[in-house]
Each structure stands twice: as structure tokens, then as C-alpha cells.
Design a protein around this nucleic acid. Sequence first.
DNA 1: ATCGCTACTTAGACTACGTCCAAATTCGCT
DNA 2: AGCGAATTTGGACGTAGTCTAAGTAGCGAT
Lengths: 133, 133
Amino acid sequence: MDNLPVLLRSYGIQPTLQRLAVAEGVLGMDSHPSADQVLARIRERYPTISRATVYNTLNLFVKKRLLRTQNLRDGTVLFDPNAGPHHHFVDEETGEVLDVAWDAIRVAGLESLDGLEVSEFQVVMRGRRRSRN
Amino acid sequence: MDNLPVLLRSYGIQPTLQRLAVAEGVLGMDSHPSADQVLARIRERYPTISRATVYNTLNLFVKKRLLRTQNLRDGTVLFDPNAGPHHHFVDEETGEVLDVAWDAIRVAGLESLDGLEVSEFQVVMRGRRRSRN
DNA sequence: ATCGCTACTTAGACTACGTCCAAATTCGCT
DNA sequence: AGCGAATTTGGACGTAGTCTAAGTAGCGAT
């Protein structure tokens, strides 16, 4: 987290000032921002960065597998800084997205699907956050 | 399938000419069309129907639970005529969406999630269609 | 150091998807 | 027929995202 240039290089990404700003922004955000949320966050610190650059950079990060995209909100893509496999819970009231640990859920039966070769999967849940008591 | 007006009424939807056209279009389509795909389909038969009407009607159908929406494609909502619970498989090459029978997959562990009350869930898979042999 | 090539960034135009609005039409009811 | 409510409509609008063409910066070789 502290040495971003090294992190980027380890993913095959040439570190530039703008890319470091995007990395700093997206990795430090609470879980699952949209591109424009990332843009807004970054412009607090770097008000001159262009929208195209942020979009380009986020897409680059996805191609290089530093981020993943998730379709968990109507009509917009969310970026997921959590690279490893995990599931997702969507709060029905707020739309907020939470990670669910991979090992918390067991899924069986994927091998025996007729003509389908599954390369990845996740469980997508919707519901409400229970009030703690 | 043959008596659409009755079907719509049973979902609390006042049948109009336009709504019947939309129902006919969306229910007869191969699985998971986007709104604009539905619009294009319907205009083959009813070239004068307005885009706003198709969008309004699809949203009405969702509110009345005749259809569901699915976030399975980047940046656009897909409509799912299959009302019952099922899982989804997305072809990584084409983006095509296939239903997977609910009973084909077993999921365990949802009850014991810390602060989360799951009201619905599905497994979303990505991969390739295996060539039949 | 400077030349030249490639990579990166940028503003703004453009497209796609979806909603909103105000006017026109149709529907259901008396 | 006549009235109020529901529905439909075209077009304006908003938002998410891509594309383009030009400018800028980085880097290696001389």
C-alpha cells in the first residue's frame, strides 16, 4: 500500500503521476466505487486530471488484473479492488455492496452442468443488513 | 402464452394494445434481451410504438413482477422473462446469458452470515460453452 | 543535449442507455 | 355524450462511457 510505484510495476503497469493518483484513489476507497465516484475522489486532490484518463486508467488496471469489474448496480459498472475470489451482498435499500468471504459459502454442482465450462463464479445476494444486537 | 390479456390482468396490469405488443415481444424472445433489443423486436411488427412506452411498460412489468431485471452485462440492464428462481451462466466470448436450473446447484452457508439478511440470491457463472460431442 | 519514437494525457465530440416532461390520446364510468 | 384518470408519445434531457486528434512527456541512441 505504501509503495504504489512498485505495486503498479508488479502488475506490468508503467507508473505515471496520473496512474498513481488513480491507484491511490481507487485502492483507498470503501469497497466498490463507480468510475465517476473514483473521478470525484481523485479530483479532490488532483483537480486537473481528465475524465478520459481516469477511465483509461481504470480499464488498464482491469486488463492488468489489478482491479476487477462487477455488474452489481443497474446501468453502471463498479470497480472492485479485491482481486481474490469472493462473493457479493447488495443492500436492497441503499445499493451498497459488501464482500462476502469466499469460504463462508459452499457451492456444489458446477461440474455437472451439461454444455458449460465454468471458469469463474460467485454468489450474488440481495437483502438487508441486520441490525446488530 | 396464448391469452395475453388474461395473463397481464392476473399480474394487475391493465392490458392495452401497446402493453400486449411488449408482452408478446419480450416473452417470446430468446432469454435475456435489453430494453432496446425488445424495442427493435416490437417495431418489426408495430413500427409506430414509442421508445418511452416500451421503457415505461418494461418497468411496469418489473414492478408487477411479470419480469425481473438482471445485471449481467456491462452498463445495461437485461430483462428476464423467467420469473422463478434460477442461476445464470454468461458466455465470456459472446456475452450471451443462459439460465441454469435452480436445482442443478446447491449453495450452503447463507444462514450464518454475520449481519446480513439474505432475501434472494443466485450463482453467476462465467465461462465457455463446451462443444457437444 | 537533442533527436526521434513511443507512450501517455487531454478536451471535447460523440454514442448508448435511460428518464422526464408536457401535450395528446384513449379508457372507463356515469 | 361527457368527464376525470390512465396511457401514450416525441423530444428534451441526463448520465455513463468511448473515441479522436492533438498535445505532452518519457526514453533510448547517437
